[in-house]
Write a protein that binds this DNA or RNA. Structure first.
Lengths: 216, 216, 216, 216
DNA sequence: GATGAATGAGGATTCATTCAT
DNA sequence: AATGAATGAATCCTCATTCAT
């Protein structure tokens, strides 16, 4: 009896500069990254994402169909840079394995562990089970190629006698395992006991290509 | 002999009679493990937990104060067995490091990766960030002691010349990293490409204690 | 950062007598009838339905899957009584057509136009286009059989010379049209100018079976 | 010749230039008719109306104050033509009632049932309850005068002995009822079982003015 | 005049939690 | 102790309306 009668009080948009839509998209993704990483997909509130992005709730939906699409775009969008990094390593000239690994790990430490990108890895790990599509894509585009590359690298290193045995060639995952550990450690125990990532990586490289052994 | 069942159903407690409340607690925890692991803490429904445990929703609250308490009890409760396993390793007589590691990893593969206990690790990884108390406890009770033990083991091994350098002694996490990787891999990529955990572990042990090197 | 911490303030149900679930279902349907009829399907608020039914919003969902299901149950449920009424007419002994019609129309006027059941017809008319399933069902169960019955009745009447021609036999809808008009009139113009339904019906019967003509 | 179109699109008003605002108003009304008829007032989206009209959403508000005003203008605007049609019938010379009715009904069938104008009637029926002002207006301008006219027509016909009794004179609604039925039938059951409107109307005229009876 | 991105109140739906039985 | 119907706060998403350009 009151619905059509009471003209809903005027709503609309308060004056806000125009800003390029792409910047806004980025702002939303940045905000989403923080909120999703902090609370997880299910517990994150789009309300908070909007507030953090400095926009209205409804505006989110101009850029992303729904919560899930936002999440997927978030994780999806991070894959391209990772791919690029991977490519750089693949294109490395024929330098000693030790150097390749050092560079690779250092890059990872800087670009991922040392930046917000780390949060994306977190999300992939913590929410992956709920987003099979994303995981499948990520496996096909990053993990499998990355491992293949590592396999080649390690095979060559083994042939050259740079590493003690062919274990890392057969299981390139072994080469990456400490990086994953670093991510998870930071995510869980970072507050309690920070991990000396650099030291860890150095030690790992030492283990792989044998330090002292090189100059007996 | 069980005549009472044919009475006009008392509308309230089902005729399940006196049963040990401890069994019920277990049933709830088992059900909770499955549901939490499948959907994550936030998305899991206590309704489903109750149904899976074969009890009424309200009954949950007779055993656990709330959803969070249930979750914590779940993860907490799994720590004791882990502790015990750890102790067993610590108590090992003075056997070769290679054997200790083999035993340790095999036990982990069997008791954790090969059982539902794997789900608990998953939960710790995926939900840990939201349960600092749990993570703190886990770190204090399991991770720190475990790493300390590993440190001792590796230090001894290095002193004995069983391993090439002191990297694993300084970063005992390196020893555990592949196990973590196995858990995460299974959790994310298990469906896509199963990991040969046994092979991975063997290779890892080979890398640590040097296979071929032993018999030149 | 605050989600899992702040235990949501205790909610639950305030003391309310048990009442049989069936009565509650009825209360909901009754409330829904009023609200849907007053505002239409889209504009009706389940909140209002709940309030009118004297229950909490969430309780609705214990009885009906969603708004649509509630609406369909509402209209669906009204079909049974209509069917029964129809059957009564069909079972009438071989009385004069005039009397059959009088009875039929009087019943309709009393049972439908004179009661809340009229609202259901309204809903069918106003919302039917949005609920094809409902309309299909209604056509198959009520309209088609009803027209078939009317066809038989009018054919017999024509054969007996009780009516002037076979128009009503060929288009039994003609017999019902004034009833529909009465419903729509009441729905739209009832407030402005009440319709003398009884007079209308009498006049219609007179038109059909010829009043004065019979006894000049 | 239409070079301006190749200028760097002025980002704002499309180069549609000066066009008559009246045409645009019509386009909006036409689009609104379709959308409102398809979904009902509450469920129709102004977004869709704008898209269908080929204009921007904001432009709607240059022509109509709000959704309600648009709806009212829509239904209101259709009344004029109906009035005109009515007038034509009223102005008919003194021809036989049968012919007047035939013409009236045929006009209705062609101009209303056979055109998009039918949708307007639908809207009046389905949404009328929510727009009392509209219904009042419609009653005053169309229904009451129409019935008055019909009353006069039927009274004259009865006096002349063209119809069997004075029922239609006393309840001119009876004359219109089948038309209403045709509208509602089409609206609800059109998909399921098309109605032979022409046949229905013929039969109805036959019933009113007596077919065979005229020439015994 | 025209645009359409932005707004935010509103409403459907979910689910942890309670409590009369 | 156990039940499960009832509760209502919380949150996603929609869409009428506005206004800077």
């Amino acid at each position: 009896m009151k619905r059509p009668a009471s003209k809903p009080r005027p709503r609309g948009r308060p004056p806000r500069a125009p800003e390029q839509s792409e910047a806004r998209r980025r702002a939303i993704l940045d905000a989403a990254l923080v909120e999703f990483a902090a609370h997880g997909f299910a517990a994150a509130r789009l309300d908070d994402v909007a507030r953090r992005a400095g926009i209205a709730k409804g505006t989110l939906y101009l850029y992303f169909a729904d919560k899930e699409a936002l999440f997927e775009a978030l994780v999806q969008g991070a894959i391209r840079p990772l791919l690029d990094n991977l490519q750089k390593v693949a294109d490395l000239p024929d330098v000693p394995t030790r150097q390749v690994l050092k560079l690779l790990f250092a890059t990872f430490a800087r670009e991922v562990l040392g930046s917000d990108r780390k949060l994306l890895l977190r999300l992939l790990i913590t929410e992956g089970a709920r987003f099979p599509r994303l995981v499948t894509f990520y496996h096909a585009e990053i993990v499998a190629p990355g491992l293949a590359l590592m396999h080649k690298l390690m095979t060559r290193a083994a042939a050259r006698g740079e590493i003690a045995n062919d274990a890392p060639a057969r299981f390139p995952q072994l080469v990456m395992a400490p990086l994953l550990l670093a991510v998870v450690w930071d995510m869980l125990f970072g507050r309690i006991a920070a991990l000396d990532v650099e030291g860890l990586i150095d030690a790992h490289v030492g283990l792989l290509v044998g330090e002292g052994r090189a100059a007996p």
